[in-house]
Amino acid sequence: MAIVVNLDVMLARRKMKLGELSDMIGVTNANLSILKNGKAKAVRFSTLDAICRALECQPGDILEFSEEE
């Protein structure tokens, strides 16, 4: 897919672990792993909203369009 998920980059910048984000936003670790590894087929606005609030970032910091992918 041409959409790249930069969740791992954002987590590294915030020095946060996936488990911590999972506890903060109430989304399971397994589901966040699916998102982080680019296996997700869709992302709910509510999930995106929660991630952006927790990481204090914009949706564009997490999702990126890449034609090469």
């Binding site: 989304v27 589901n31 966040l32 699916i34 998102l35 296996k39 997700a40 087929k41 869709a42 992302v43 709910r44 999930t47």
Partner: peptide, 8 residues
């Protein structure tokens, strides 16, 4: 179903 399961 697959799509729903892979919706985060």
């Amino acid at each position: 179903k697959d799509e729903m399961e892979l919706t985060v």
